[in-house]
Design a protein around this nucleic acid. Structure first.
Lengths: 100, 100
DNA sequence: TTGACTTATCATCATATTCTAATATATTCG
DNA sequence: CGAATATATTAGAATATGATGATAAGTCAA
C-alpha cells in the first residue's frame, strides 16, 4: 500500500466531505443507477428543492457530479465511475449483511 | 449495483464524516502501514498533541480505529481492513498518476 | 405575453466542527 | 516520593456547514 502524497490528502479530504452528508450520499447512490433530474432526486431523497439544489451544486463544484440541461429539466450524473468503487467499499463496511 | 438501504445511509455518511478531514485522512493513510503511537502520528501529521488526540478519539468512537495501551504509549490501528479498500478507491480518484 | 413549472441563488439563522490553551490522568524513572 | 513523559479531557472562541424561505431566471405551452 503506497502513501497518498500530502498535497493530495487535502483534495481527497475535501472530496470526502462533499460525500459525507446523508442527502448527498443518497443522491450518489441513486445516480449509480443512471442520470436523474432534480425533481426525481427530490422524490427519491425527500429533500426540499432549495436544499437539494445546494447539495447538487456542491457536488458538481467538487467534481463528483456533472449536469446537463435538457428542456426545463437538469439531469445530473456521476462524473467519475470510480465513485462507484468507493460506494462499494462503503457497503462492505456499513452493510456487511448485504450480499454484494 | 444495489442500493444502500436508507437506514444505513446515515451510518455510512457519519463514517465518511469521520474520515473527511485532512488530519484524520492522513492518520488513516499512515496506519495502513501498521500500528503507530500518538507521538509517531504527531510527527507524521504535524498536528498538535491535543488536536491529534481529539481526532483519534473521534475515529475510535466511530469504529474506524482501535487503540491499545502499552506502557506509557497508546498504539492505534485500523479497526476494519475494508477502510484500506476505501482509501484505494480514493487514490484512484484523487491520485490517478500514482501507479497503484 | 402570461402563467405554470423547474432549477438556481441569496440571506439568514441554527447547528456542528475545529483549534487552542489549560488542566487532568497515568506511567516510568531516578 | 517527585519529576518527566505520554495521552486524554475540557472549555471556549472561531469557523464551517446546513436548512429554510424568498426570490430570480430559464423554459414551455396556451
Amino acid at each position: 500500500m503506497q502513501m497518498i502524497p500530502t498535497k493530495n490528502i487535502k483534495e481527497a479530504s475535501q472530496g470526502l466531505r462533499a460525500l459525507a452528508h446523508e442527502t448527498r450520499l443518497a443522491v450518489l447512490c441513486h445516480l449509480l443507477q443512471g442520470p436523474m433530474c432534480v425533481q426525481e432526486l427530490m422524490a427519491a431523497t425527500g429533500a426540499s428543492q432549495s436544499n437539494l439544489s445546494q447539495h447538487l451544486s456542491k457536488m458538481r463544484l467538487m467534481g463528483i457530479l456533472e449536469s446537463e440541461k435538457r428542456g426545463q429539466h437538469v439531469y445530473y450524473r456521476i462524473a467519475n465511475p470510480d465513485f462507484g468503487e468507493l460506494v462499494l467499499a462503503l457497503k462492505r463496511i456499513y452493510c456487511p449483511d448485504m450480499c454484494s
